[in-house]
Amino acid sequence: MAKVFERPKALADVVTHYCPGCTHGIIHRLVAEAIDDLGILDRTIGVAPVGCAVLAYNYFECDMQEAAHGRAPAVCTGIKRVRPEAIVFSYQGDGDLASIGAGEIVHAAARGENITVIFVNNGIYGMTGGQMAPTTLVGHKTTTSPYGRDPKLQGYPVRIAEMLATLDGPAYIERVAVYTPQLVMKAKQAIKRAFANQVEGKGFSLIEVLSTCPTNWGMAPVDALKRVANEMVPYYPLGVYKDIDAKGEDK
């Protein structure tokens, strides 16, 4: 019998601490599949964030380094410049990358560092108990916006993919989602390409993945997937925002 689907080798064979139905698990697996497909496990170095994915260093079979909150792109920069043959990626949530780490990601992108960034956007701080994030949608109730996010008080959500795509540095920026099996497969292709770009020396690649937080959204996992489709995708449209290989105009 041929294997249609099996656990990727780059994904450590352990139980993750993620809540039931959290799509972090799917995104971890896609990163591991991309590493397997490209055959780069022995020279890949990952950088874990602060946030729910803080323990990501336990879940990948490659070398991992933990970064201070938001500083993963700066740590990646250092590793990549000292070990240019290594394939270096960061795995960051929205509370890490879009908030305290906003400066680091903008400048890593502007410098066009040859690294891969996986940006997981679920519009809330998960690990710390469901506070409002820079990416929290208008009207969304969190523990620090109990009446819903009010633009007059808390401003508007940040669209990271669009913002970074205005820079000349990045090679490839795409926003994907994982709320259907078809989109999971598309996300896999995007993540694989983000790693392949680095192997080919093309420069900075960032994949923003719309994710869920069933626990802090207060929803069943299946309903949380529907919320991504119905509420997040209209504000955070999926697609390629920057691609130096694309013919004609970028989106």
């Binding site: 249609v4 139980v15 993620y18 799509t23 698990g25 799917i26 259907t180 497969m185």
Partner: peptide
């Protein structure tokens, strides 16, 4: 099912 499973 396998592609959507967060826990492989």
């Amino acid at each position: 099912c396998a592609r959507m499973c967060p826990d492989a």
